[in-house]
Nucleic acid binder design. Structure first.
Lengths: 212, 212
DNA sequence: GGAGGACTGCACTCGTGGTACAGTTGCGTA
DNA sequence: TACGCAACTGTACCACGAGTGCAGTCCTCC
C-alpha cells in the first residue's frame, strides 16, 4: 500500500497534483458526502481541467478507492503513534497503554477547530454508492483497530488477569466505536472536547478492568 | 412536533402517502446518503408522480427537515421505552437503569439484519447540504440524549455517590457515542452483535462507577 | 353541489458525471 | 539533439436527475 505512493512519487518534477486532489476531495467528502462532491469543484480548487482529473482517476469510483487507501495509511500512522509513544515512556503493557490513551485524548483535543471526521464513517453511511472492494477496504480499516487493541489486551491480560469476565473483542472495538461516535457528536454539537473526554472514560474502563 | 402529525392525519381517506414517502426516503438516505437519494426513486417506490412529491414537500430541503423531525419523534419514543421498562421492574434508580440498558442491548441485537443506522449520523457527515435549521435539529436530537442520561445520573448520584470523580456529562454522552459508533461498526463489519455488546460494556462502566 | 385536499400530466431548464480524443508542454535519457 | 513519456489542456458531446410552473382531475366531506 505504501509502495503505491513510491511508484508515483519520483516521477517528473514532483507533480503533487494527485495528492492535492485527494486532500481537497477528502475535505469535501467529509463536509458534504461523496456524491455531492463534484469533480468540477475539485479541479477548480486544485487548478487543473476536467481532463486532468480523468488522467489521474479513470472515474469517480477510482477516486473513492484512492481516498480510502490514503486514509488507511494515515490511520495506521495514528495507531502506531498511539501505541509507540506510550510504550517508550513505560515498559509495562498496561501503563504504557494508559499513557498512550492519555496522549491520544490530548491529540484529539488539540485538533484545529472541529475535527474533520472519519472517512470510514462517511463511506459507511453511503455504502450503496461504492462497490464491494471499497466496502471491504472500509471494513478492513476498522478491523485493523480491533486487532491492534485486542493484541494489546491479550498482552495486558497475561500480566494483569481481569477481575471479571470481559468481552475483550468488544473492549477492543470500543476504541473505534468511541472515536467514530465521538467525532459525530463533536461535529454535530461543535464541541471538540467531547471526543477526548470519551477517550478518558475509556481509559478509566480499561484501568478498572485490569488494575488490581 | 407531535401536533404536526395531528394536522395531516385526520384529513381525507387516510392518505398515508407522506408517511410512506418519509419511510422510503429514510431507508434510502441511510443506504446512499441524502444527495444520492433521488426523488424519482422515491416516487417510483411509493407509486405517485413527481408533482405528487412536490405537493407534499416544496423542495428536497423540506424533505430533509421532515425526515429529521420524524426521526426525532421516533428517537424520543425509544428513549422513553429504555427508561420506562427498566423502572417499572425496579424502584431503585441505578438498578432500574441497569435493567433498562440490558433491555436496550437486547432490543438493538434483535433488529432484523444489519441495523439501518442513524439519520443524525448520516446528516452529520453531509451537513453542508443542509441549512442551519436542520443542523440545529440534528444537534438537538443528540442533546436530548445527553439531558436524559445526565438527569438519571444525577438521580443515581444522590443515592450512590460515585467512588471517584466522574465526568457525568461525558458519561451521559457516552450512550449516544456508543450507539452512533456501534451502528457504524455494525454496518461496516456486518455484525449486529457489536452494538449490543458495546452497550453491555457501558452498563459495566456505569455499574463500576456507582455501585459500592 | 361546491370547496378543497390530494394528487396527475406535461413541458421545461440547468448542473454534473462521464466519454472521447486530439493536441501541447517539458523533463530525462540515448 | 532527437525521442519518449508523464502530465496535462481543449473541445465537443450525451444522459440523467433536481427542480420549476401550471393547468387539470378525482374524490370526499360538509
Amino acid at each position: 500500500m505504501v509502495q503505491l505512493r513510491m511508484i508515483e512519487a519520483p516521477t517528473r518534477k514532483g507533480s503533487d497534483t494527485r495528492e492535492r486532489l485527494l486532500a481537497t476531495a477528502e475535505m469535501a467528502v467529509l463536509a458534504k458526502g461523496f456524491a455531492s462532491t463534484s469533480i468540477e469543484e475539485l479541479i477548480a480548487e486544485v487548478g487543473i481541467t476536467k481532463s486532468g482529473f480523468f488522467y489521474h482517476f479513470k472515474d469517480k469510483t477510482e477516486l473513492a478507492r484512492a481516498l480510502m487507501e490514503r486514509y488507511m495509511i494515515h490511520d495506521r500512522e495514528v495507531l502506531d503513534e498511539l501505541f509507540r509513544r506510550g510504550d517508550e515512556l513505560n515498559d509495562d503493557p498496561l501503563h504504557g497503554f494508559l499513557v498512550g490513551l492519555r496522549l491520544f485524548a490530548e491529540m484529539m483535543g488539540q485538533l484545529p477547530e472541529a475535527h474533520p471526521g472519519c472517512l470510514a464513517a462517511s463511506f459507511c453511511y453511503q455504502d450503496q454508492l461504492f462497490d464491494q472492494q471499497i466496502r471491504d477496504l472500509n471494513a478492513e480499516a476498522l478491523l485493523v483497530w480491533r486487532r491492534r487493541f485486542r493484541a494489546r489486551f491479550d498482552q495486558i491480560s497475561e500480566r494483569y488477569p481481569p477481575r471479571h469476565k470481559v468481552d475483550l473483542d468488544a473492549l477492543s472495538d470500543m476504541a473505534s466505536t468511541l472515536v467514530e461516535g465521538g467525532l459525530i457528536l463533536g461535529r454535530a454539537l461543535k464541541d471538540v472536547t467531547i471526543l477526548p473526554r470519551q477517550i478518558l472514560l475509556y481509559r478509566d474502563l480499561v484501568r478498572f478492568t485490569f488494575q488490581p
